[in-house]
Structures are given as structure tokens and as C-alpha cells.
């Protein structure tokens, strides 16, 4: 196990592994995503209260889950990068940030599109909306700090410190916002007042959650390949690799 970890933590072999996995993951993700969309948007029954508009949930909810999960992955990779100085962990750490920020922005955008017909407003200062917005700021902070430091390796370790401080803070921020919201009673009812989700809705939702994770891995591998290529383009192994493929 340790041997395999060591082998794949070296950039050349990880680059090749990325390429092999990506060739399988890309068609699989596209096919499963299409299947999930058909299941969620067409086959699943309409909600008895919200009608068809609830279907945006099949994008919104998996995306919200991913926005938190990606932050955890980013911070964990950052911790590995700080402690063991593994170059691959630094790359994984920083490549997570734009993907996570996109999931967060997608969650906010789909939430607003759903909120307009359901609550009558694009934005209300609901606890979950607000903490998702703050999560977006945390991602943007990581991206901005990384961009501001010229040395790539130093930048990745600096953002790792920030991400770890963020992980300690996220629960505190989340609960503070919930508390704030319950004290300043929100203007609208912000709960899905449907009964506990029926299996015919829950199944496509969980399926989409798995597809989103697959999508994350696919995109992360593609980004990692890109950033390895960028950092190693002057190195001999990469030139050989590129020449071999051409």
C-alpha cells in the first residue's frame, strides 16, 4: 500500500495514471450524468406541492453537498502538503479550489432560481443561503491568496494554512448563521414543506450525488494533468511523454 502510494505520488507516474483513468472516467461521467438527468427531470414524479419546479433540486442538492466535500478534500490535501511536503498533495489542494468555488456558485445560482417561484424572491437571508455565500468567500480567499504569491509551492502551502483555519471555522460560522437566522425570524418559510422524500425522488437524488462525485474526480484529474504539464513542461520525462504521444 505504502509502496503504491509512493509510486503514484511521483508526478510522472501520476500523470500517466491520470491519463489512463481520465479516458475511462470521462465517458462514464457523461453517460451517467445524462442518465441521472433523464431520471430526475423526466422519470421522477412531480412534487404534489411544488409541481415541476422542484426538479432543480437534482442539481442543487448534490452541488451543495459537493461544495462542502470539496472544501474538506482541499483542506485534507493541504494538511498532507504542509506536513509531508508532497508536491502532488499541493497540486490536489489548489486544484480543488476553483472546482469547489464553482459548485458553491452553482448551488447559489440554482437556489436563487428555485427561490424566485417558491419564495417569491431570488435572495432571502436564510441561514443556509448565507453560510453558502460565506463558503464562496472562503474559496475566493484561497484562490486570491494563491494568485498573489509568485512562488507556486509556497503559495500552495500558504493557502493550505488558510484552508485548515477555514475548516476549524466553518462549523462555527455555520451555527452562528443558523442562530442569527432563528433570532431574526426570516421573512419566508424556507423549508421544503413536503413530507420526507419518497423513494421515487430520493433514488434519483442519491444517484445524482454519486454522479457529481464522479464528475468532481474527472474534472480534478483533468486539472491535475494540466497543472503537472504546466509545471514539468521543461523536464525531460515530460518531453519524452509528449513526444511519445505525438
Amino acid at each position: 500500500m505504502l509502496d503504491a502510494t509512493k509510486r503514484y505520488a511521483s508526478l510522472p507516474s501520476f500523470y500517466r495514471l491520470c491519463g489512463r483513468l481520465f479516458a475511462w472516467l470521462l465517458p462514464a461521467t457523461v453517460a451517467l450524468f445524462a442518465a441521472g438527468l433523464v431520471w430526475g427531470l423526466y422519470l421522477a414524479p412531480a412534487d404534489y406541492k411544488q409541481g415541476e419546479a422542484y426538479r432543480i433540486m437534482f442539481i442543487h442538492v448534490p452541488s451543495a453537498w459537493m461544495s462542502l466535500l470539496v472544501y474538506m478534500v482541499m483542506a485534507a490535501a493541504g494538511a498532507v502538503a504542509l506536513v509531508w511536503r508532497v508536491k502532488l498533495a499541493e497540486l490536489i489542494h489548489i486544484e480543488c479550489a476553483p472546482v469547489g468555488a464553482s459548485f458553491t456558485a452553482l448551488t447559489l445560482a440554482t437556489g436563487m432560481l428555485w427561490g424566485k417561484p417558491m419564495w417569491g424572491a431570488f435572495w432571502v437571508w436564510d441561514a443556509r443561503l448565507t453560510s453558502e455565500l460565506i463558503l464562496l468567500f472562503l474559496y475566493l480567499g484561497v484562490i486570491a491568496l494563491y494568485a498573489a504569491i509568485p512562488d507556486r509551492r509556497k503559495a500552495a502551502r500558504a493557502t493550505a494554512v488558510l484552508a485548515i483555519v477555514g475548516v476549524v471555522n466553518i462549523p462555527v460560522i455555520h451555527y452562528s448563521v443558523i442562530w442569527w437566522n432563528t433570532l431574526h425570524q426570516g421573512p419566508t418559510v424556507t423549508r421544503l414543506d413536503a413530507p420526507a422524500a419518497h423513494i421515487s425522488i430520493l433514488a434519483p437524488l442519491l444517484f445524482m450525488a454519486v454522479v457529481f462525485k464522479l464528475y468532481f474526480i474527472t474534472v480534478l484529474l483533468a486539472r491535475l494533468r494540466g497543472s503537472i504539464a504546466e509545471q514539468c513542461r521543461a523536464q525531460q520525462w515530460f518531453r519524452d511523454e509528449a513526444a511519445g504521444r505525438a
Partner: peptide, 10 residues
């Protein structure tokens, strides 16, 4: 300011 202000929310 961008890094720190979100942490000040609580």
C-alpha cells in the same frame, strides 16, 4: 480583508 472578514462572521 478578503481572507479575514468571512472568519469574523461569528
Amino acid at each position: 480583508a478578503l481572507l479575514v472578514l468571512p472568519f469574523y462572521v461569528p
